[in-house]
């Protein structure tokens, strides 16, 4: 685990100090202090309405027009993967991947990124010819091609079927191993968080309710016995009790 040692000394990729956001007088994020070390894969769990998307949008800088205070530092190269693939229907897949990039070798990089996500040969396809999983792969390629220091993902697999989702989990983890961006994955799926992330945060009423480091080797199986413990702790932090057991 050599890569980890050098990251311990590096400055955090994301630093939040006293971050507060509110909508119509309702406080959604309440005085959050948080450091995300460079290269860490973090998952952010929470109920719907807990403010997890608000936190992600704040870090992405997508919340102009929102009332708030606090200090926030984030890397320059940030990519966002949304729940919908958000491909422009009037551009072919490769041109979608290249959106916002320039330079003469951009097209070559775009092809490489598409090959990396398993979409080699689909460069000239229109987005509406792709399946849901393929579209989300293209969206991943679009975020990769910018070589992000920080990858923000807002429930990126929420709209996919269960089988495709598992395949995307493997892919995302592989891509992370290869490129080592800092990742903040917003999800409401506890298992997804445990299987993918090295650290899981639970956001509860605008505050970080639980900060859990998951120490289990990758790749992780859903049936790994260690994960059951983490699962219970996380569900408890989310206020879910498994009465039926």
């Amino acid at each position: 685990m050599a890569p980890h040692t050098q990251q311990l000394t590096a400055a955090p990729a994301v630093q939040l100090r006293g971050l507060t956001r509110s909508f119509d007088g309702r406080t959604v994020l309440d005085d959050i202090d948080l450091d995300l070390p460079a290269g860490q894969f973090t998952a952010l769990l929470g109920h719907s309405g807990s403010g997890k998307s608000t936190l992600l949008r704040a870090i992405a800088g997508l919340d102009h027009e929102v009332v708030g205070s606090g200090r926030l530092t984030a890397p320059e190269r940030v990519s966002v993967v949304f729940q919908d693939s958000r491909l422009l229907p009037w551009r072919r897949v490769l041109d979608n991947v290249l959106l916002g990039t320039n330079g003469k070798d951009a097209a070559e990089k775009g092809r490489e990124a598409l090959a990396e996500v398993g979409l080699k040969g689909r460069e000239r396809a229109w987005p509406n010819e792709l399946s849901g999983g393929e579209a989300q792969r293209a969206a991943l390629a679009r975020s990769l091609v910018r070589e992000p220091e920080l990858l923000l993902a807002d429930e990126p697999f929420g709209a996919l079927d269960a089988l495709t989702r598992i395949r995307m989990h493997v892919l995302l983890r592989e891509l992370w191993e290869r490129h080592r961006p800092s990742v903040l994955l917003v999800t409401h799926d506890v298992d997804e968080a445990i299987v993918l992330a090295d650290r899981v945060l639970v956001l509860d009423r605008g505050r970080i309710g639980l900060d859990l480091t998951i120490e289990a080797p990758h790749p992780r199986s859903y049936r790994h016995p260690l994960l059951g413990e983490y699962r219970e702790r996380l569900l408890a932090a989310l206020g879910v009790t498994e009465d039926h057991q």
Binding site: G61, L62, V78, D84, L88, G100
Partner: peptide, 15 residues
């Protein structure tokens, strides 16, 4: 949603 995407991808106003 496309406005957000353009902001995330760092497009200029003209782009």
């Amino acid at each position: 949603r496309y406005v957000e995407l353009a902001e995330v991808q760092g497009l200029s106003r003209l782009q």
